[in-house]
Design a protein around this nucleic acid. Structure first.
Length: 271
DNA sequence: AAAAGCCCCTGGATGC
DNA sequence: TGCATCCAGGGGCTTT
């Protein structure tokens, strides 16, 4: 679920309130994807300095150490109403003097990881292979084109892989390719320079529009204030199998690539 | 080194 | 209503 826009919306909705907070406890529920790393005890008394985002990871800088969060497929991170006990799908409570940040994650693909710093081997293992941030100045048409030249996989799979450009998940990969007019099955290396430039622009446009809409809520997603996103109301192809394309009325098609659903318009997205 | 598959887990929708 | 099946926004790990 949570792709770059959802993670970024979450970050923005919690950063002000959690920054400067003093951690009283980290209470864990059912096990998440990875073990915490250090002792939850070690977090007691630490102060939150900042919350950053790298790809789909939230990086919470502490006065000593770093807390990494991942929302997986079904996770959301939000302040719990005062006094409300954790439910069956609440698996981590960061209790602070400025409120309790609660990770709600029914499928438990999410993670909370405590490391000494970003250069900790455990952190590096997860962060080192990540691609460029699509909304940063380091994401350029030339760089994208050069990276695509090295890949023979279908462009949709390359976008999803996250080692070239981060944060583009299953919804936004389909949406970006639609906006760029590129067929998801096209081998990445066959994308010309001008089309790579269009794709570059499309990725930025789609992610920015999603950010402006507060992300997409298909089922579980909520921001740090418990609010849903609305970008799902603007999708052109994702989840619209058989419905007419907004542009040309051709029925939208659903295929499977790498065990994930892909949606596209066979008319608007030629090869 | 890149690419393809497998798997983690739970709940909701659909179909019989 | 009950049960089986399929599907889901991610991504690390293993194998080829």
């Amino acid at each position: 679920m949570p792709e770059l826009p959802e993670v970024e919306v979450t970050r923005r909705s919690v950063v002000d309130r959690i920054t400067g907070a003093r951690i009283e406890a980290l209470r864990l529920g059912k096990p998440l994807r990875w073990p915490l790393g250090l002792q939850a005890q070690a977090l007691q008394g630490r102060t939150v300095r900042d919350v950053r985002r790298r790809g789909k990871y939230l990086l919470m800088d502490l006065d000593q150490g770093l807390l990494m969060w991942h929302l997986g497929m079904s996770g959301s991170l939000a302040f719990a109403p005062p006094g409300q006990a954790p439910g069956p799908h609440d698996h981590a409570d960061l209790v602070t003097n400025q409120g309790t940040l609660r990770l709600h994650d029914p499928r438990r693909f999410g993670a909370v990881i405590h490391v000494h710093s970003e250069t900790d081997p455990r952190a590096r293992k997860l962060l080192d292979g990540l691609g460029v941030e699509p909304l940063s100045p380091f994401f350029t048409p030339e760089g994208l084109h050069a990276g695509l030249q090295l890949r023979r996989s279908p462009i949709k799979s390359v976008l999803l892989a996250g080692d070239l450009v981060v944060g583009v998940g299953n919804i936004y990969a389909s949406e970006s390719l639609f906006l760029a007019g590129i067929r998801p099955t096209l081998a990445a290396q066959r994308i010309s320079r001008p089309r790579a430039a269009r794709l570059h622009a499309a990725i930025r446009t789609v992610l920015q529009q999603a950010l402006d809409s507060g992300g997409s809520t298909l089922r579980d997603y909520r921001n740090g204030l418990g609010q849903t996103g609305h970008f799902q109301l603007q999708v052109k192809v994702y989840g619209r199998d058989g419905e007419p394309c907004d542009v040309c009325a051709t029925p939208i098609r659903r295929i499977v690539q790498g065990q994930r659903a892909t949606y596209y318009c066979p008319t608007c997205q030629k090869a």
